[in-house]
């Protein structure tokens, strides 16, 4: 559905998007995952036709994403990061206004029902809550029944309940047969929603696969985290049974990625006794996309 090839964007000499390529299949939920400033929004906005790339090619639904913008725009629906709408129009007025920009518009009542906005129909935009505003932003993104929907960090700034509601909406959009292209910096969101994820860092796609596939590539399924109390060389832990990867964060915590959780733990405790380490905050968990990012970049996805 979407084909992106060697996309480049340069701002004041800096390559904020540096040769990004990927494809999005019809009917899938595709995610761009990465920290703030990785180039996710710039990439999305180039694909949406809002920014002109300094290099590369974009194809959407068979149309040239640079030259056939008119056709592309009828095909896609977009929700920008913090969509700004007219504060003094009501929900129904906003939907009608944006609907008028397209050849076809879905019935107002259908959209209000789909996004749980029936009661807010006559409320001014400025009186809506964060979650309601975001649902309205997505309602106007699908006002013309588009095949492809772009959601730029749709849950940023929402409370947990509103975030869950939005996840349901994304899955609903997918079930309706639409292609969803979203960006997020929450790894949990990418794992829950996306069929495939492209991990971005510093303007590059550093990994691209299904969330399960990415975790599988780690060749380790478990993670051990602790704060050792005193500094030890990474090689000290590298020698433990099953350890594939040792990461040390700035807060002195150590992360071990292992294929054999039990054995590694047993050896780690023995090691701690021998070297008089504390193992404060010791915990284990299964690997996540967070660990994929940590392994690939040496950085954490979300600043903790």
């Amino acid at each position: 559905m979407i084909e992106v090839n060697q996309l480049v964007k340069i701002y004041s000499g800096k390559r904020v998007v540096d040769g990004v390529s990927f494809h999005v299949s019809e009917g899938e939920v595709f995610g761009l995952l990465g920290p703030n400033g990785a180039g996710k929004t710039t990439t999305m906005e180039m694909v949406e036709g809002l920014r002109t790339p300094d290099g590369g090619e974009i194809t959407i639904g068979g149309f040239n994403g640079l030259k056939e913008l008119g056709k592309v725009k009828e095909l896609i629906g977009i929700q920008l990061q913090s969509t700004a709408l007219f504060d003094h129009l009501t929900v129904a007025e906003i939907i009608r206004l944006y609907g008028s920009f397209y050849k076809n518009m879905r019935p107002l009542s259908e959209l209000l029902a789909a996004f749980d906005l029936e009661e807010k129909k006559k409320s001014l935009v400025k009186h809506l809550s964060g979650g309601q505003k975001q649902r309205l932003a997505i309602a106007i993104a699908v006002v013309h029944d588009p095949k492809v929907i772009f959601l730029d960090e749709p849950t940023t700034g929402l409370d947990p309940k509103a975030r869950r509601d939005l996840w349901d909406i994304v899955l609903q959009l997918r079930d309706e047969g639409r292609t969803v292209f979203l960006s997020t910096h929450y790894m949990e969101e990418a794992e829950q929603l996306c069929d495939r994820v492209a991990i971005m860092d510093s303007g590059n796609v550093i990994a691209l696969d299904s969330p399960a596939g990415l975790i599988r590539e780690l060749a380790s399924d478990s993670v051990i985290e602790f704060v050792p109390g005193k500094m030890e060389a990474s090689s000290t832990y590298q020698g433990l049974v099953g350890v594939k990867e040792v990461k040390r964060a700035e807060d002195d915590s150590v992360t071990l990625l292992t294929t054999h959780l039990q054995e590694t733990l047993r050896e780690l405790i023995a090691l701690a006794d021998e070297k008089e380490l504390t193992l404060a905050g010791l915990r284990t968990r299964t690997s996540t996309l967070e660990d994929v990012f940590l392994t690939r970049t040496g950085k954490r996805l979300t600043e903790s």
């Binding site: 949406e48 809002l50 725009k73 896609i76 977009i78 969509t83 700004a84 709408l85 920009f101 397209y102």
Partner: peptide, 13 residues
């Protein structure tokens, strides 16, 4: 500044 125009730019308007 608020991005209201940019949202419209994303439509065929």
């Amino acid at each position: 500044e608020r991005g209201i125009l940019r949202r419209m730019q994303g439509t065929p308007l």
